[in-house]
Amino acid sequence: MRANGVELCVETFGDPADPAVLLIHGACASMLWWESELCAAIAARGRFVIRYDNRDTGLSVSYPPGEPGYALSDLVLDAVGILDGLGVDRAHVVGRSMSGAIALGLGVDHADRLLSLTFVATTTGDPDLPPMTETFLEASGAQASSDVETIVSVLRAYAGTSPYFDEESVRALAVEDVARTVNVASAMTNHFQIEFDAPRGGGFGDISVPALVVHGSLDPVYPLAHGEALRDAIPGASLLVLDSVGHDLPRPVWPVFVDALVEHTA
């Protein structure tokens, strides 16, 4: 799809007549990490599910490593362009990890296009919140590598001490993702170098649509205090804590997540 002046790879699940749920993944992650089975499970509950490759991931537009030709505000407008291209007036938006910032930009600067917001494993960015764990920082040092086994190792670090990490499934997805990505080096680096220039009309306290915060109890990237702070920063927001979950969304908790998302988007 051509959206906001660039080529973006988009996939949908379910009936376009149902309420739309736009899934936006975080740094370095293509839409494959919103697993197709999870998308289908949400769609089966009466939702029109949209997932897509952010710039520099998967089959979407790619830029040279270290030279992203875009800022966060462009990623926000990409999401708006996708809704335009699909004929969706308003959507329920789910932002995960870094893309919580994209969701925030949509919620503040494009509130007229939203029905609700869900933030998964993300943060307010308050410097007083607990830092990433030392174990995670050591394990994630190879983030820029395009080797499948290194990617699996990094994703294992994202899971932290969660018992739910499924190495076989993660490796299979990593192999598929590397094979379809235009430039893996760009995918693994460029999102960390963009300017965070959105939202422009306020902050978390200015969100006016219903908001749900979903956070793992064992998140090593943004410890649980980040999710609690995010709930407190958004007027009327609620918090779902996923027990024994790290900075991922493992299959064993999908039923809990899907139930909460369906209820939130009802």
Results as ranks from 00 to 15, higher is better:
179 A>D: 13
133 T>P: 02
105 G>C: 11
197 D>V: 11
39 C>S: 09
52 Y>I: 01
41 A>F: 03
45 R>G: 09
107 G>R: 09
191 H>L: 10
137 L>G: 03
221 V>P: 00
248 D>A: 13
69 G>Y: 11
224 L>R: 01
143 Q>D: 02
125 G>V: 07
174 A>C: 14
121 A>S: 15
102 I>T: 13
118 T>Q: 04
97 S>A: 14
197 D>T: 09
46 G>R: 02
65 P>T: 12
73 S>E: 07
116 S>V: 12
115 L>G: 06
192 F>V: 00
208 S>P: 00
98 M>L: 15
245 V>I: 13
34 W>Q: 01
86 L>W: 10
264 H>E: 12
1 M>Y: 13
192 F>H: 09
91 A>V: 10
75 L>V: 15
187 A>T: 10
101 A>V: 05
181 T>I: 04
130 P>M: 11
173 L>T: 15
259 D>W: 05
237 A>H: 03
4 N>Q: 03
238 S>L: 12
193 Q>F: 15
18 D>L: 12
213 V>E: 00
171 R>I: 04
252 P>I: 11
19 P>A: 07
257 F>I: 10
88 V>N: 11
258 V>N: 05
67 E>A: 15
264 H>G: 10
13 F>L: 04
27 A>D: 04
105 G>I: 13
124 T>S: 02
244 S>K: 14
176 E>Y: 00
204 F>V: 15
192 F>A: 07
85 G>T: 13
204 F>T: 15
186 S>T: 15
94 V>N: 09
117 L>G: 02
210 P>T: 11
19 P>D: 06
19 P>R: 04
105 G>F: 11
56 D>Q: 05
47 R>H: 12
130 P>E: 02
135 T>L: 01
28 C>L: 11
150 T>H: 04
16 P>K: 08
246 G>T: 12
217 S>V: 12
73 S>K: 10
92 H>V: 13
18 D>I: 07
257 F>V: 15
59 L>E: 14
87 G>V: 06
217 S>K: 03
47 R>T: 08
232 D>R: 14
242 L>Q: 03
115 L>I: 13
7 E>M: 11
64 P>V: 10
94 V>Q: 10
101 A>M: 15
30 S>D: 14
87 G>D: 08
32 L>G: 06
59 L>G: 08
104 L>N: 07
73 S>R: 13
230 L>Y: 00
84 D>R: 07
82 I>Q: 09
65 P>A: 12
153 S>H: 08
37 E>K: 00
215 H>S: 12
193 Q>D: 12
197 D>K: 07
240 L>T: 06
71 A>P: 01
12 T>H: 03
70 Y>D: 01
45 R>V: 08
260 A>D: 05
1 M>N: 04
202 G>E: 09
223 P>R: 05
243 D>A: 14
200 R>T: 15
78 D>Y: 10
108 V>L: 04
77 L>Q: 14
204 F>R: 14
229 A>K: 01
188 M>N: 07
108 V>D: 01
85 G>R: 14
128 D>S: 15
124 T>F: 01
61 V>W: 11
132 M>Q: 14
157 A>C: 01
104 L>M: 09
